[in-house]
Computed example of a mutant assay.
Amino acid sequence: MLLELPEGPFAAYLFDCDGTIVDSMPLHYVAWKKALGEWNVNFEEKLFYAWGGMPVVEIIRSLNEMHGVNMPVEELHHRKEGLYYEMLGDLKAVPEVLEHVHATHGKIPFAVVSGSTRESVVKSLEILGILDKFDTLVCAGEYVNGKPDPEPFLLAAEKLGVDPKLCLVFEDTEMGIQSATAAGMKSVKVMQPWERITA
């Protein structure tokens, strides 16, 4: 079933990656639980989804502050990513978003705008065999201010040479929707795993 899109026309589609193109959020959460469990730090699932779109290093810094601990940011970042990569064989696409990718590819340019690292995004898209569908990637570490700031989406529009007002954003998190709105872009909300109706 295709997602209902706001009225266009649109000159580019900008997609978040995790939870939007790839149904990776449950796998990311398992990786977080394992990595943080080694430090006896709890990460509530509700908070994990609320922070969707936040770069990994920011999540670790925020958890350090919240729990009054001092987990090494880079070390934990690599540990968590490594655990996620081990599970990539289980990765699947979000069907309704994948339909839009296939239906519109070649008609307008696509970008991925993610709070994950470029390595993580590339691996996820390669597993699904759709990396070549995207004209540009904007990933963690390539912008100063992450979502909900508009910078990541504005950077993607600039790379594609498209007016931000003519971009449509596909996002699964409130933080991402806020970022798109702040960038002057229309957006379509992709439902979280538990919100999707299974046949």
Rank of each mutant, 00 (worst) to 15 (best):
M1W: 05
E4V: 08
A12D: 04
A12P: 08
L14T: 06
L14E: 10
L14M: 10
F15Y: 05
F15G: 07
C17N: 15
C17A: 12
G19L: 13
G19Q: 10
D23W: 05
S24E: 09
M25C: 03
V30E: 15
K34R: 15
G37C: 11
W39M: 13
N42H: 12
F43V: 14
E44L: 07
L47Y: 03
Y49P: 11
W51P: 00
G52V: 09
G53F: 01
M54R: 13
P55K: 02
V56G: 05
V57S: 09
V57A: 10
E58S: 10
R61V: 09
S62E: 15
S62W: 05
L63T: 02
L63C: 06
N64A: 04
N64L: 04
V69W: 05
V69F: 05
N70W: 02
P72R: 06
P72S: 10
E75K: 11
H77R: 14
R79G: 00
G82F: 02
L83I: 07
L83P: 06
Y85S: 00
M87Y: 00
G89K: 11
L91G: 09
K92C: 07
V94K: 02
V94D: 07
P95W: 03
V97F: 02
A103Y: 05
H105E: 13
H105K: 12
K107W: 01
K107G: 07
K107T: 13
K107M: 09
I108W: 02
V112K: 07
G115W: 01
G115S: 03
T117P: 00
T117D: 10
R118E: 15
E119Q: 11
S120N: 14
K123E: 12
L125W: 00
E126H: 05
I127C: 06
L128I: 13
L128D: 11
I130Y: 07
D132G: 12
D132C: 00
K133T: 08
D135I: 04
C139Y: 03
A140T: 03
G141R: 08
G141N: 07
G141E: 11
Y143K: 05
V144T: 14
G146W: 01
P148L: 04
P150F: 01
P150S: 10
E151P: 08
E151D: 12
L154Y: 01
A156C: 09
A157Q: 10
E158M: 08
E158P: 01
K159S: 00
G161P: 12
K165S: 15
V169D: 09
V169M: 12
V169N: 13
V169L: 07
E174Q: 11
G176Y: 01
Q178L: 15
A183R: 08
A183M: 09
G184T: 09
S187A: 13
S187Q: 06
V188P: 06
V188F: 00
K189G: 02
V190G: 02
V190Q: 04
M191R: 13
Q192D: 08
R196D: 09
T198W: 06
T198R: 11
A199P: 15
